[in-house]
């Protein structure tokens, strides 16, 4: 009655999806699923929490917007206001139309770059990072489920075979 760790290979995304649904229904824990392309509905089937990355992006955008305003206010109005073409450097709001393009660009800049950095950090992606997919064919045309065996190993194995798994491997933890 020992819990084993299984690596199960599939060669079709629809079959994989049905298998995942079945495994979740059987209350067997799935550690990870590795696919060569995003499979629609897989994250829901695995009961993954939706990602909050877009919310962080919105916040980053707000930060960018604020940074641009603070920067230009300090530079053009507070620290060294100049008479440039007669433009009213008396207050931010009077000179604001000239600042709009940069306010917009910095908002997008901060939102995009901080979001991508967040994504890379959260998904552990950076140069010199070693890949962690157990089978190299999962970036080609195979799909791999890294799961517990459940209490009954042979029952799990037969269920998986019935669902269309092309190979089942027992691995060390």
């Amino acid at each position: 009655m020992s819990l084993k760790r299984l690596h199960v290979l599939f060669d079709d995304d629809d079959i994989l999806l049905d298998a995942v649904k079945e495994i979740v229904k059987s209350k067997i824990y799935i550690h990870e699923v590795y696919t060569p392309f995003p499979v629609h509905g897989l994250d829901k089937a695995m009961k993954l929490k939706p990602t909050k990355i877009s919310i962080t992006t919105f916040i980053y955008g707000c930060i960018g917007f604020t940074v641009s305003i603070l920067m230009m206010n300090y530079i053009m109005i507070v620290d060294w206001p100049q008479d440039i073409g007669g433009k009213p450097s008396f207050s931010y709001i009077e000179n604001m139309p000239a600042f709009v393009p940069i306010m917009f660009e910095l908002t997008v800049f901060f939102a995009a770059h901080l979001m991508v950095i967040t994504f890379y950090l959260r998904s552990k992606l950076w140069p010199f990072k070693e890949a962690e997919n157990p089978d190299p064919s999962t970036t080609d045309d195979k799909f791999l489920i890294d799961m517990d065996s459940g209490s009954n190993l042979s029952k799990t194995k037969s269920m998986l075979k019935k669902m269309g798994a092309i190979s089942i491997k027992e691995v060390k933890e």
């Binding site: 100049q82 008479d83 440039i84 073409g85 007669g86 433009k87 000239a98």
Partner: peptide
Amino acid sequence: CNHAPCETVCPVAATSHGR
């Protein structure tokens, strides 16, 4: 010019208007 077209467009503020 008090509303100099040249001053506005210099990116490094090399030309500005004196008091």
